[in-house]
Design a protein around this nucleic acid. Sequence first.
DNA 1: CAGTGGTCTAGACCACCAA
DNA 2: TGGTGGTCTAGACCACTGC
Lengths: 292, 292
Amino acid sequence: MIDKVTETDSKLTLHIVLQANLMNTESNSLSDISAVANLELAGSAGSPNNPTPAFSPLYQQIKTLILQSLQAGEWKPSAAIPSEMDLAVRYKVSQGTVRKAIDELAAENLLVRRQGKGTFVATHAEQQVQYRFLRLFPDSGDLQGEGPAQRQIIDCKRVRASSDIAKALAVRQGESVLQVRRVLSFASTPTILEDLWLPGAPFKGLTAERLRAYHGPMYALFETEFGVRMVRAEEKIRAVLPDADQCVLLKTSARTPLLSVERTAYTYNDAPMELRRGLYVTDTHYYRNALN
Amino acid sequence: MIDKVTETDSKLTLHIVLQANLMNTESNSLSDISAVANLELAGSAGSPNNPTPAFSPLYQQIKTLILQSLQAGEWKPSAAIPSEMDLAVRYKVSQGTVRKAIDELAAENLLVRRQGKGTFVATHAEQQVQYRFLRLFPDSGDLQGEGPAQRQIIDCKRVRASSDIAKALAVRQGESVLQVRRVLSFASTPTILEDLWLPGAPFKGLTAERLRAYHGPMYALFETEFGVRMVRAEEKIRAVLPDADQCVLLKTSARTPLLSVERTAYTYNDAPMELRRGLYVTDTHYYRNALN
DNA sequence: CAGTGGTCTAGACCACCAA
DNA sequence: TGGTGGTCTAGACCACTGC
């Protein structure tokens, strides 16, 4: 009765367990199911060529299932997911197990819990801080904006991926990608110059006009218009000097050192969906980082 | 019987609850205590002049108590704290409540859980990565060290705190502070120049000789020799050009932009204990940051 | 083998929110 | 008032470690 699952899915051990739970509609004493399932899992079940069967607790499996629903778009950004009780019934586990799965997803900023209201799919729009991934702050005060940033789209064109761009975006070299250049200004002072590259397929139809027309974070546009959710990112930071073009756009001198911030942003499953090279003017702003 | 506590402590509601628990040595049915306590807490107890009684769940109170024991040195760095069961008995709560308190402390890197062994006080020594707060990595590969860093203590002297140093360390201006300058080299290439300031009182007796004699992270020395544990830090990053002295020490040109990393490190209770100004050479290394 | 942290459950009650 | 997430408990069993 579980043939279909074990045949089509690579993570068979996990799904065997869950299917076992799902099959047992009412017959057994439910409290014993998970114990049996874990034995199966740690023991002989699963692929015999794997020396470490990679024991995975139930809540991790639930987490994976929720993640799949998120990725498949079953629940849209900013919408509420089913309540813990509903999910517990659906997955045939206790509420506490669902809770632990959701706890981890909330810690990873994929879900947002709101007491009394429900659990919601995180989004880059409607966020308290305008730019979730931007770490640049003004020297005076910790307000993210001295007023909102002024955005200026310089360019948006299709180009063929160079080898490093292709590698960063996990596409083939020479494949068509989108290249965008923009400037962010604070208090009318150009402060950030960004070049960014996006894989062509998911962002088909993106133009400078649409970028200019949209008000709000660019990642919010990616979510709502293209269904691409940036989930996490990594940045590599260096100190550099600008070239001639960059000087003009940032209205700065060629001898002013700038922060080079190269960001790779990922969607679900660690799939890279954006490469962004930023130049930050750091005479009136600084890059803030918290170490724990 | 709880007068002493309510008089001397500002967070009275919290301690009333805990005292109530601690007083109840054996008499009542223990399972009802916490429920009662929470009613007291959310209801009329506590300070009447506080409009929002600041409801604090039990596990947060336990967390605070554990934190106090850590701060008081009841459990030394790298030593094991009592088991969850022992703590549950001690605080008269369930194991699950202690567990949740420890979970949060582990998430903040104050404790480290090791299955089958126990829960241990986190330390800067004996860590997998040599430097817990250092975010600089070589371009090639993700090995933190191309071999370990070579450390060179340039200077260690007492100075009077300037206004900005005093402010950062929360001491009075003109008060005596320690100033250290050192260079870190990777593969014989000077890469990091650091100036750091420490409050005089906690670090009385620190000399260049002791710094040179100690092998291992400086924060580990602070822990073992001075009982000061750095718990978290914040960094402000800019791009700058070096001055003449810095050029010499880093063997770089005055036109090479460098990363300026100003770090404030905190011990318990958000008390600042170190100000560190670093200059990073970023032609063969980069500063890495993860955004979630 | 005993002791530790890790998982899972079931049930109770609380705080918060919206209708 | 009902539904949601948040807290707390008690008890069972599992995985890991070291004697």
